[in-house]
Nucleic acid binder design. Structure first.
Lengths: 216, 216
DNA sequence: AAGCCGTTTAACCATTTGGTAAAAAATGCT
DNA sequence: AGCATTTTTTACCAAATGGTTAAACGGCTT
């Protein structure tokens, strides 16, 4: 009843197909939750867009709430990784901050729906966010704050409140995902292009670096 | 049938009480829509918080959709006014921009729920926003852009894309309303205080002014 | 070929929710 | 006081929606 002792999750034909389905559902769900919010999204809509019947979808994710949790977990995982970026790549502060900004905007470009789901969650008062994940995000964040504080105390940048600096970076970078509808209207485009995101990256980096007294 | 020819809307006892009710409902509705989104908000909840029966509330606003429209119109009106600020108060560019930022953050403090409703609306792709109001916002905005362009061409500030500068200002200032839940967690407070908003104003102004090469 | 296990469908259901219709109660006006 | 107008309540309702249960289906292994 088991002749592949090395592999952990067995990998049958079944589980392969299941993985595909689950991945597709999660992707579609992210879209739908982003567009309609938790309450506005119906499991019917999600199932339909994923090409399944409602009951069949419920076979893979037994409730709407659970599905939403998974979607949220997914993007929060990515978020967490992109946060820790600050104390990665070992160059000067300016480059680090610039890379941080670049990555954040890149995330807005590649995962706009995830960003929107997260944004809506926060706007509504984070009703579905577990304490566990909150504290995880928080502790990861505090490392970044300490790093910026050290830069300040070493006189490498202006003495500003690091927390508010991060609020500024997060908001300016996420706005290209969350408020894309508004930005598209103003720029007169149907959809933001890669070069729009490049413009954004350049401007945000420039203003933040110069504005905090960092130079490359 | 009319013995007060001067006043326009008659002002009977009825209409006075009606005004009060409508104002209260609108205020509560803004709260509830901000907290639960359009679909998550129920007219029952709104009515209850306003101290009325559902049916009675429907007497004042005949449908949920209409009520939402009114809430949206309300804040958009305020938005429009705060936009035009740029070409108000006739001092130097730096002061003007700083005032603009200050006002925006002030709005985040005083009308956080309106901001949240608007934000959710945009995140969801602005499904309820009429073309009329979009073009109005747009034309008002373009005036501001032209002003900034003139500052640039006169060498008063760095040559940056004004549109993106505004995206940056809007996002950084609105984040104190929209993402207050996140910010509160990070700052470890139950609710943001006036001095938090003051800190925010100072930092955002400082970074943006210095970052764009403006000085007072 | 047969049975087993994972998947899909069919039939159903209880609750929630936005909204209607009409009667009853207040309130203002002459 | 008596009538008209406005406000509030009572009684309903149809559609939408999240979810359950059980039966049918299909392919893989022995």
């Amino acid at each position: 009843m088991s002749n592949n002792p090395a592999e952990k999750p067995k990998q049958t034909q079944y589980s392969r197909s299941r993985q595909k389905h689950e991945a597709r559902i999660l992707q579609v769900a992210e879209e739908v939750f982003a567009q309609f919010g938790y309450n506005g999204a119906t499991i019917d809509t999600i199932a339909e867009r994923a090409g399944l019947s409602k009951q069949n979808m419920l076979y893979y994710f037994s409730s709407k709430h659970l599905l939403y949790q998974k979607v949220l977990e997914n993007i929060l995982g990515i978020w967490l990784d992109s946060m820790a970026l600050l104390d990665q790549s070992g160059k000067d502060p300016a480059s680090k901050l610039e890379n941080y900004i670049r990555r954040k905007i890149e995330l807005s470009r590649t995962r706009p729906n995830g960003s929107k789901v997260f944004a809506t969650e926060i706007i509504n008062g984070a009703p579905h966010l577990s304490e566990e994940i909150k504290t995880k995000l928080l502790s990861r964040f505090e490392e970044d704050v300490r790093l910026v504080e050290s830069w300040i105390s070493e006189g490498m940048m202006d003495p500003i409140e690091p927390k508010h600096l991060f609020f500024m970076i997060w908001s300016t970078t996420q706005t290209y995902a969350d408020f894309s509808a508004q930005i598209e209207i103003i720029l007169g485009k149907k959809k933001l292009t890669a070069s729009d995101f490049e413009d954004a990256t350049k401007l945000v980096s420039r203003v933040i670096l110069k504005g905090t007294g960092l130079r490359r």
